[in-house]
Design a protein around this nucleic acid. Structure first.
Length: 428
RNA sequence: GUCCCCAUCGUCUAGCCUGGCCUAGGACAUGAGCCUUUCGAGCUUAUGGCGCCGGUUCAAAUCCGGCUGGGGACGCCA
C-alpha cells in the first residue's frame, strides 16, 4: 500500500510551498487509496511553537485535506537514540562530546527520482554528520530516515530543496539496514521576481490568503496548476476529479513563479460560480470575522446584497468597502465621486425622487421603467441621472447596476439618500 | 568555492519519452472591438514563445554534447 507523509516543522506558519507539497502528497495518497500521514517535525524545542502547529493543522484542514495518522517527533526521541545506538554498535557511528556522529561510507549514490529520473551524486559535502545532538535531540536527516522507515513510507514526496539531503539519507538507510523508499522531488514555487517566495512578496502563509479573501478551492486549484496539468487545457478542476487524474509522475520538473493575477482570476471564477446561498454563507462568516457587519443584519437582506456584488468580486475582501453602503448610512461621498456632482441637479433629483416615491412596487423593473421615463420627460440622457444617483446612494462613482441596487436598498433609504444629495447641493 | 536541479509566449502550461500530424495549442495578463447607467462580467479578436552553438537525421521544440541563463543545497535549523 502506498503511504506518504507531509512533515511540517512548527517553526512558522504553513506557507504556499509547504501547502503544495502537502497537497501533492495528499492527492497521491487519495489517488492510490493509500495512507496520508502527518509528521510534525518538532525536534527543535526552541523554535517550535504550539501556535504554529495549530495554524498549520488549521490551514491544512481549511484547504480541504485530511490525514490518516499524525506523529510528533518530539515524542520519539528514545527511538532515534535507540537507532543511533545500533549504529554505534555496528561501528557506523560514534559518540563524541555528548553528540553522536554518523560516518558516511563513500560511494557514488544514484537515485531514481519519480519526477526527475536518474540523479547521480559523485561526492558528499562532508564525511560525517551529527545525528544526535548534544541535547539528545536528533538532527533532521536522521530522524527523517528513521521515521520514514519505521512508518513504512513508500513514497517520499518533498520539495526539490531536499535533493541534496537524499544521498545522505540513502547512506543512512543502508547503514541502518532499512529498505529505501521511492523519492519524488517536486519543483519549488518562486516569487514573481524569480527568487525564493518570501518577505518581499506580500502574503505567503495560507492564513494570510484566507484573510485576504481567497477561497480554499481557488488556492488548491491554483497551486495544483503550478507544476501539474490535466493535459486537456482545463484550468478549473474540482478536488474530486483531480484525485482521479493526479499522478506524481506527471508533475513537472521546472520551478514555477507564483502569479497573483492568475490566482485572482481563479478566485473570481469560483466566487461567480458559487450559488448564492453558499456564497452568502461564506461571505457572512468572512465579514463577521472581520467585524464588518452591524449587529442584527437580516440574512435575507444580506443575501440580496451578496447577489448584487457577486459578479464583481475578485476576493471576498472586495465586498468589505464596496458593499459597506448597503449596511451603513454614514458613508461619505468619495472625492473621486464628487466630480459627478459638479453640476447641480437638485431640481431634477427632487422630481425623480417624488416620482419614485409614488411607485406602488419598488422592484428593479418598475424602477428602471420609471427612471427612464423621468429622464425622458426632463429631456436628459438616462446616465445624466444614473451617475449622481449612484453617488447619492453609495457615495461612490462605481458600483453594481443602479436599478437593482435601488431595489435592494428599498424605497425609504433611497428617498432619504436622495434628500441627502439635494441638501449637499444646497450647502455647496 | 563544491555539489545538484531546471530551461516552450511577460507568467502558468500542452507538445518532448515513442523525431514528421507544430505555419507550436490552451489559460492568465495586455491591446482592440462588441455589449452597457459606472465598474466588472461576458463575447469576438490581436500581440507574443521553442535561450544560444554544434552534432545525429531525408526531417528536431522533440535525440546527443557544449555554452549561457535561472534556481537550490552545503547548520549540533528542518
Amino acid at each position: 500500500m502506498v503511504r506518504v507523509r507531509f512533515a511540517p516543522s512548527p517553526t512558522g506558519y504553513l506557507h504556499i510551498g509547504g501547502a503544495r507539497t502537502c497537497l501533492f502528497n495528499w492527492l497521491y495518497a487519495r489517488h492510490c487509496k493509500g495512507e496520508f500521514i502527518l509528521r510534525i517535525e518538532d525536534t527543535d524545542r526552541e523554535r517550535s511553537k504550539k501556535e504554529y502547529l495549530d495554524e498549520i493543522l488549521e490551514s491544512i484542514s481549511w484547504l480541504g485535506m485530511d490525514w490518516d495518522k499524525i506523529f510528533y517527533q518530539s515524542q520519539r526521541f528514545n527511538i532515534y537514540k535507540e537507532y543511533a545506538q545500533k549504529l554505534i554498535t555496528k561501528g557506523k557511528a560514534y559518540q563524541k562530546d555528548d553528540a553522536i556522529f554518523f560516518k558516511y561510507e563513500f560511494q557514488t549514490i544514484q537515485i531514481n527520482d519519480l519526477i526527475r529520473g536518474k540523479i547521480v551524486f559523485s561526492q558528499l559535502p562532508k564525511e560525517e554528520e551529527v545525528i544526535i545532538k548534544k541535547d539528545g535531540s536528533p538532527t533532521y536527516n536522521f530522524s527523517c530516515v528513521v521515521d520514514d522507515a519505521l512508518m513504512g513510507i513508500t513514497h517520499v514526496i518533498r520539495g526539490e530543496d531536499h535533493i541534496p539531503n537524499t544521498p545522505k539519507q540513502i547512506l543512512m538507510y543502508k547503514a541502518l539496514g532499512f529498505k529505501e523508499p521511492l523519492f519524488a522531488h517536486v519543483p519549488l514555487i518562486l516569487s514573481p521576481e524569480g527568487g525564493r517566495l518570501s518577505k518581499r512578496f506580500g502574503a505567503t502563509s495560507i492564513r494570510e490568503f484566507k484573510e485576504a479573501g481567497y477561497l480554499a478551492e481557488s488556492l488548491v486549484n491554483y497551486l495544483l496548476l503550478l507544476s501539474w496539468s490535466p493535459k486537456d487545457n482545463r484550468e478549473i478542476l474540482s478536488i474530486k476529479e483531480t484525485i482521479e487524474l493526479f499522478d506524481i509522475k506527471d508533475v513537472n520538473k521546472s520551478a514555477a513563479e507564483f502569479s497573483l493575477e492568475k490566482l485572482d482570476w481563479i478566485n473570481s471564477f469560483y466566487i461567480k460560480s458559487k450559488n448564492i446561498d453558499e456564497l452568502a454563507k461564506i461571505l457572512y462568516q468572512y465579514t463577521k470575522d472581520k467585524n464588518f457587519l452591524p449587529t442584527n443584519i437580516d440574512l435575507e437582506y444580506f443575501k440580496k446584497v451578496v447577489f448584487l456584488f457577486r459578479e464583481r468580486l475578485i476576493k471576498l475582501s472586495d465586498f468589505l468597502d464596496r458593499a459597506r453602503f448597503c449596511f451603513y448610512d454614514d458613508y461619505t461621498y468619495l472625492e473621486e465621486a464628487k466630480e459627478i456632482l459638479n453640476k447641480n441637479l437638485a431640481g431634477e433629483i427632487e422630481f425623480l425622487k417624488n416620482r419614485l416615491n409614488l411607485l406602488p412596487n419598488f422592484d428593479k423593473e418598475t424602477i428602471e421603467k420609471e427612471f427612464r421615463e423621468v429622464c425622458k420627460e426632463l429631456n436628459l440622457e438616462t446616465k445624466a441621472l444614473v451617475h449622481p444617483v449612484r453617488v447619492a446612494i453609495s457615495g461612490r462613482r462605481i458600483g453594481p447596476g443602479l436599478f437593482e441596487t435601488l431595489e435592494v436598498l428599498g424605497k425609504d433609504k433611497v428617498i432619504q439618500r436622495l434628500d441627502r444629495l439635494i441638501k449637499y447641493w444646497q450647502n455647496n
